[in-house]
Design a protein around this nucleic acid. Structure first.
Lengths: 119, 119
DNA sequence: TGAACATATGAATAATCGTTCATACGTTTA
DNA sequence: TAAACGTATGAACGATTATTCATATGTTCA
């Protein structure tokens, strides 16, 4: 991390070293898109609440709806999004489908978010 | 983390122990909202790209616009959102305003996101 | 002070998103 | 097999959001 010189904007080209370093560190377009898509999934308090329930236990859809005071449909829609992002995984047991956390990145990411919020 | 019994949905009350544990671990309504707001900020590839530039150096607005091939206005709008979320901080130097990362949570959160994406 | 430059911002528009409602799908059991 | 239960999903609606355009604010320098 280095400071750029102050005369930065009245020239045709930005500093070549900055451009070079940025291009080296910048992920591919597709990865940037996927990253944004992933964080979008965390960007809804309903889904965050679902994740916090799954921090405690493997839970079926109707129990999630009950605990969170939501309709079964709304929960199901959000679970689909969480599942597509591979943040949760599903397991069928008879009529019920039980959801659980897919991996520990979820905990880490949310923990870091909480740390940031608390200044 | 423990499995719930299979007969979960044909009863008036969900398991009391689950409710209790969830209520213990669940943050306040306000924190859930703030968490979602924070991740919403990460949920846009333009802002992610801005952050990746700031990983390399402290940069002024017009250089950001140039490097990212965006209009100055669009960059400025997004910088405002990043600043409100305290992910970046600004420093005026003459006519220019230089932006930099506010703290290391940004790097950690994005790093965890990248790990998750790569399975 | 006035002109030039860098940045910020309000309004408008198009696109995206979460919930609801209705209904379909899958499983169990009587 | 038919009914009951749990879950999934498409369409529609209202709300939110990123970008653009026009313009305002703030700073430097002649």
């Amino acid at each position: 991390m280095e400071k750029q010189s102050a005369d930065c904007c009245d020239q045709v080209f930005v500093h070549e070293d900055l451009v070079k370093k940025v291009n080296e560190g910048m992920p591919e377009e597709e990865e940037l898109y996927d990253l944004a898509e992933l964080f979008k999934v965390f960007g809804d308090s309903t889904r965050i609440r679902i994740l916090f329930v799954l921090f405690e236990a493997e839970v079926c859809v109707c129990d999630l709806a009950e605990v969170l005071h939501m309709t079964q449909s709304a929960v199901s829609h959000q679970l689909k999004i969480l599942k597509q992002a591979k943040l949760v995984s599903a397991r069928r047991e008879g009529k019920s489908v039980f959801y659980s956390l897919a991996d520990d990145h979820v905990r880490t990411i949310i923990a870091q978010g909480r740390e940031h919020i608390e200044e």
